[in-house]
Design a protein around this nucleic acid. Sequence first.
DNA 1: CGGCTATTTCGGCTAATGCAGAAATAGCCG
DNA 2: CGGCTATTTCTGCATTAGCCGAAATAGCCG
Lengths: 176, 176
Amino acid sequence: MPDLPPIARKFILHWGEMGARWGINRTVAQIHALLYLSERPLHAEEICETLDLARSNVSVAVKELQGWGIVKITHLQGDSRNHFESMKDVYEMFRVITNERKRREVDPTLKLINDCLQDGGKPKASEAYVRERLESMKEFFDLAVNFSAQVDKVSTPALVKAAKMGDKALRLLGLS
Amino acid sequence: MPDLPPIARKFILHWGEMGARWGINRTVAQIHALLYLSERPLHAEEICETLDLARSNVSVAVKELQGWGIVKITHLQGDSRNHFESMKDVYEMFRVITNERKRREVDPTLKLINDCLQDGGKPKASEAYVRERLESMKEFFDLAVNFSAQVDKVSTPALVKAAKMGDKALRLLGLS
DNA sequence: CGGCTATTTCGGCTAATGCAGAAATAGCCG
DNA sequence: CGGCTATTTCTGCATTAGCCGAAATAGCCG
């Protein structure tokens, strides 16, 4: 990895590990970190050199990141190559990723649970407990989905403000 | 998988896939689903038979689940074998897992970012942008950690109530 | 202590993932 | 169309993760 300040490299490696723990390919996460820390959009070749990866590898990784919606292609004046740029606002990034995971994982899970629950057939007694547990999981996910949709409507500055209120927010809502 | 209602099997398989996408071993997640759906604690042998796994495999998987804090060992009258039982309250489960992920992943990330930022040395100009990005990521994580600590204090019923308020909660806080 | 049962650890095989390099494709001038 | 560059797809190797069965360990009576 030439050209990188040590602190950047340190972060990139760590981010790769974290990604791996969350089901994101290690190098995909590293590339994301690199782009996030980069002041300007980078083209594939630069990414290869900086992180010592094969060109083809970078191609698919970058596509993956675009799939998540946190990296975009840009073009520079008089350069035909694709340049890649990460979203820079961490809050926004979090929103985008959260929404995407909801779409990919939570929604299908809810659908499956619903399917299970309204699976016709005679309601066998042996299934009663299973259904009960599935019901309560459904309830949880329904609530979570609704709630996150609400929160998603609120602007980042407003959210930050609310988060900083700490206890006060809770008291305002009559909780705590 | 003998003995399992089809809807249970369906859910277990799905849960395994979801786990895999979140960095949890597929069979670990399956076992978790099985225990969650099970009316009574199961011993390792039962898990083996039901999910068709090797005994040793179950041993480590179950340990993993205990490590996450969502499965506990219980003992039954006159049976020396360990029996395993999943937490049943989905909300509580979510709390526990969230806290554990924070401990394992967010905290170390924050620590690393802090290390990077206060990495002495002369503040090279080339690092300025990197530092800026790290700062803003730190800010985000700090806020998230604080906020989640606040929320974690609130009882589940209170949280559910708040979540169900929908728009009203936002208006009460002066958002939206 | 010996025998029994339950659990864990270990060694090695298998399957899945990740990745490089080559080949194919696409896009762009001239 | 031909040549050039950038990108993607494909093929197969390498690494890792997952998992089984055997062996070792632990715990519990008698």
